[in-house]
């Protein structure tokens, strides 16, 4: 509740100069991310927005360690995630890293092991990290994401998309992460379910002080639940800053184009065409 008073000056998550280049068949090179830097405070929430091919998913995967950056570092609480402390074994380092950053993926069904029931899924995570994996703890985790006893015994294919995504969030919370990366985590859900998940995330953030990195193509969603926003285009950051400023009074012509393209009350697709002409001219 009183996160503001206790928040230390040093940011929780620091991404510094993240760069990733892929070699394409045919010898060309694709720079998926080019010197991407940002910070997130404890309990803060950052949006990374962009269209397909902007590199936002690559950034998300570099944060959690699924993709190794060519250059740049990710640090949590001042510790570089890539370097292993001498006192740690490889497995211990892996688990310690996992407790720093967790991730929720886009497609709720295939991001869960099809063989495992919800209970079994959480037990696997808890045991992996040597946590209490008793039924009480599992029920508490399920309850935290709004799932009950009936869902506990169900496998992913017996759950709805929204329920699967709740379970995926519970799995991430099971290891008590400091940062939760959400890669298009509500994009595949129905509108009414999407709002439920967004509200759940907001509650979790208030209760646990986990910081959110919200990777999304949906500007309205990012506008609603983040404090800082990074706008990416073709691997580079075109604009970043407080969400209200970036998405309220954008300076970059591309950000303006993105915003002008979002349908809303009194909108005309021609608005976007005009913004495109400006973006192309710039």
């Amino acid at each position: 509740m009183s996160a503001i008073e206790t928040r230390p000056e040093a940011p929780l998550l620091v991404a510094d100069g993240l760069t990733k280049t892929y070699r394409l068949p045919g010898g060309e090179r694709l720079t998926a991310a080019d010197r991407v830097s940002f910070t997130v405070p404890r309990g803060g929430s950052l949006g990374v927005v962009g269209e397909s091919g902007s590199g936002k998913s690559t950034v998300a995967r570099m944060l959690v360690g699924l993709v190794r950056p060519d250059a740049g570092t990710v640090a949590v609480d001042g510790r570089d995630r890539a370097t292993r402390p001498p006192s740690f074994g490889r497995a211990a380092h892996r688990l310690a890293r996992a407790r720093e950053i967790q991730m929720v993926f886009q497609d709720p069904y295939i991001s869960l092991d099809p063989r495992l029931t919800a209970r079994h899924c959480l037990r696997t995570s808890l045991r992996l990290h040597g946590r209490d994996a008793g039924d009480g703890r599992i029920a508490a985790l399920l309850d935290q994401v709004g799932l009950g006893a009936r869902e506990a015994g169900a496998r992913p294919h017996e759950l709805s998309g929204g329920q699967c995504q709740r379970l995926a969030i519970a799995r991430a919370l099971a290891v008590d992460p400091r940062v939760l990366v959400l890669d298009e985590a509500v994009a595949a859900l129905d509108v009414s379910i999407q709002a439920q998940i967004l509200r759940l995330l907001d509650e979790i953030r208030r209760d646990t002080e986990v910081a959110l990195v919200f990777v999304s193509h949906d500007l309205a969603v990012v506008r609603h639940i983040t404090e800082e926003t990074v706008v990416m285009r073709r691997g580079t950051v075109v604009e970043q800053g407080p969400t209200s400023r970036v998405l309220g009074a954008p300076e970059d012509p591309y950000t303006r184009l993105l915003l002008a393209s979002v349908p809303r009350r009194g909108w005309d697709p021609a608005d976007a065409e005009r913004a495109r002409a400006e973006a192309d001219a710039a």
Binding site: S192, Q194, L198, R199, D218, R223, V262, R264
Partner: peptide, 23 residues
């Protein structure tokens, strides 16, 4: 309910009001 739960670019002081249950 759909209008109340859909995020908008403007009007951000409005909290999203989810529809309970599922389709």
């Amino acid at each position: 309910g759909l209008l109340a739960c859909s995020p908008e670019l403007e009007d951000i002081d409005r909290a999203l009001e989810p529809i309970p249950g599922r389709p």
